[in-house]
Design a protein around this nucleic acid. Structure first.
Lengths: 158, 158
DNA sequence: GGTATCGGTTGCTATGTGCAACTTATATGC
DNA sequence: GCATATAAGTTGCACATAGCAACCGATACC
């Protein structure tokens, strides 16, 4: 598949547009970051992030609609509502970590603290990278778009 | 380091905020996706993405300011300006691929086509994941924030 | 029963986005 | 060399989204 002739359709169908429609609004990523860090209640998000209450309300609603967060009544205090990541929401972890690593490396500048480590052995996690099936890190020039029908084996990923 | 007591500072310092200030506006990711797919000229971005010209102009300007794209005169046609990814821009590849994979898996739904493959052997790339130093995939529960001073070895990453 | 807290909603203002028409510089055809 | 087209914007105006502060209903606390 020559890349140029299909560029437009690649861009239109691309999962990036789909993803951005769900998590592309302002504050959505920061709310998710908060959720990954253990925030659960409206007031926690509001005071920690400093987001306007009406916007927070709207974003939480959208994230719940899209099943990235789920809303639960708090058993211990019926005034409170607990927002929890769903499986779909947790699947965004690689996106957030990739973004964080990039921001630390290229925007805020290196030595970042605290460090994200493997709880098991307290070693820092790897840099996020696009990897070949053998684990090699692939750069932009190593990549190519291939029509599914042209795949060598009956594999699907990417 | 107990997580709760430092949550606020973790969130404030986090590279995610830093990253989003640079690439968090509407269209920025889609412009970058275009750049990764080989778009180079203003009119190419405009017609491919369908973005308003003033917004495109603004976003390209900001991406150039932040040294994610560089602006060059086109030697062959002096009307044209070539926008190219810098090293900093190319470093966003993992973010875009992670976002794409998530969008395909959880929003547009599976079988995605075309597939991103390793040019070398035409095998699909791996799913993006947070990995331990030995390559194991780490889930949310496997992760922990650790102060740099408490790291077991003299290593920095994350 | 009075007061504080939680999770919103409402109204208003400020900022950002989208569209269409215009502009300046360069290229192309005749 | 003159007319026309194209590239990369800019400008002005309409509309949508975000931010702020005040308010509200339900539940908890004393």
């Amino acid at each position: 598949m020559a890349r140029e002739e299909n560029l437009r359709s690649i861009l239109a169908e691309c999962g990036i547009s789909a993803a951005l429609e769900v998590v592309g609004e302002r504050w959505s990523f920061l709310i998710l970051r908060g959720a990954f860090n253990g925030l659960q209640h409206f007031e926690e998000f509001q005071s920690t992030l400093g987001i306007a209450r009406n916007i927070l309300s709207n974003r939480l609603g959208r994230l719940v609609e899209h099943e990235i967060l789920k809303r639960q009544a708090d058993a211990a205090d019926r005034r409170k509502i607990v927002y929890k990541l769903t499986e779909k929401g947790m699947a965004l972890l690689p996106v957030l970590i990739a973004l964080r690593q990039w921001g630390e490396r290229w925007v805020s500048g290196l030595p970042s603290n605290p460090v994200l480590v493997d709880r098991n052995n307290r070693m820092p996690v790897e840099q996020m990278a696009v990897r070949a099936s053998d684990g090699r890190t692939l750069m932009l020039g190593d990549l190519e778009w291939l029509d599914a029908s042209e795949l060598p084996a009956a594999e699907k990923a990417a």
